[in-house]
Design a protein around this nucleic acid. Structure first.
Lengths: 133, 133, 133, 133
DNA sequence: GTGGTCTAGACCACC
DNA sequence: GTGGTCTAGACCACG
């Protein structure tokens, strides 16, 4: 996996990294139980402070996306669904509304948005069937 | 238009307001040339600092979503598309990828996302035909 | 609220604080929307590094126990239940088994454990009725 | 006795094993004077480092839960109660408070906790009568 | 070697 | 004033 940090961006480094790792997993480019680079490796590679990488890993672990095994490294977690159907649906709706708001302001038409969603979907590793309770 | 500020949220007040105004416009609940409440009115109504409201209006004006007519008030701007088709498409793709990343992590299936997008779309005031240059 | 840190303990400072805040809330000694001391105040009072306090607050916010409002401070969150009934039950069972394991090793009898649970329960602010889905 | 190590867990292997042995004894699935597998056997079976198993046995011996008879192996110790009633009661209270704190945050009601404790209790090998001095 | 904890001190965003 | 981010560097626990 290759990550890249724009330190000029106003988005905090740790958020950029979090987003990139989450996207890599969602796109199936990193699989469950795959090992990520060590904190020290990644911090050397990206030329950022080890604590910043550690923070990213900690945060993603708390979310259940990664898990760390002391002395062994950090790994992609098995997907779990601990949230209520209701909460998950609320979050999805909120995200979709945000997308649509921006799409309208950018001047897109309905069909363009639908087409883009359908097109990008192919790149993501969706679960099959309908998600848990 | 009614706005509501959740002061118990970690999202800064000014961002909540910006988002709500943008969404109201995108949903067609506020139309071009419609007048918004004055800074003082809105700050009194929402019980927030006038500086915060002023900041919101300034920010949305900079974005081209609102415009101020000196002595008359603040109005919803006519939709403009200053960005090239290419840039706009890039932004849309980026937003869609963000949505899909979250959707996968929430455990949704393709069809659920497609359905939610289609359903929410009905609530938004999309332009007809295909957007500008 | 008064907190006390044992820096001699092998339990990390930030975990001690997290536990104390969680317990204070569970016992109803801190109520929703109540403000906690600022990061700087608390770090001065407990004579620990402000980053350690910040970490505690961040962690509890991520858990949904606190929420921070930029520029205003950190507050006790309204209780929410985002986890699946199944996951919650699993966690409870696991915690109870841990308790019972220790109780047996300490040589307690059934009735003593039952009595202690009943007795301590009076000190905690349980919700009424049965928890969400 | 069968133990199972979850290597994908953030809990150190040696702690997992310690907990499982303690629980097995508390549930009466291992009785006093029963022999445990040798360090080599167990490490081969669980596919973990022999040093890790050795550490587990040492730790449990220090606690008085196991004892080693040179050349013969490691055995479950006779239950002893070296702690005063007062100290033991303090520990129990502390553990119960920890359980109740979590239960409240998980949104359980009193009755649910009481019921779970009663239910799980059936699986544990409690001493009869009231514990020592 | 791995990650986890803690400190010290800097600079920025929010209200 | 508040909290959020980032860096630098120390020491400890795990395997």
């Amino acid at each position: 996996m290759e990550f890249n940090i724009e330190s000029a961006s106003r988005v905090p480094i740790y958020r950029q990294l979090v987003a990139q790792i989450r996207e890599a997993i969602a796109r199936g480019r990193m699989k469950p139980d795959e090992r990520l680079p060590s904190v020290r490796e990644l911090s050397r590679e990206l030329v950022i402070n080890p604590n910043t990488v550690a923070r990213v890993y900690t945060e993603l672990e708390r979310e259940g996306v990664l898990n760390t095994r002391q002395g062994l490294g950090v790994f992609v977690a098995q997907p779990r669904n601990e949230l209520t159907k209701r909460v998950r649906k609320e979050r999805l709706t909120c995200l979709v509304d945000g997308l649509l708001t921006e799409a309208v302001h950018l001047g897109f038409a309905r069909e363009e948005v639908t087409a883009t969603v359908a097109e990008r979907m192919e790149k993501f590793a969706f679960a099959h069937g309908v998600g848990g309770q």
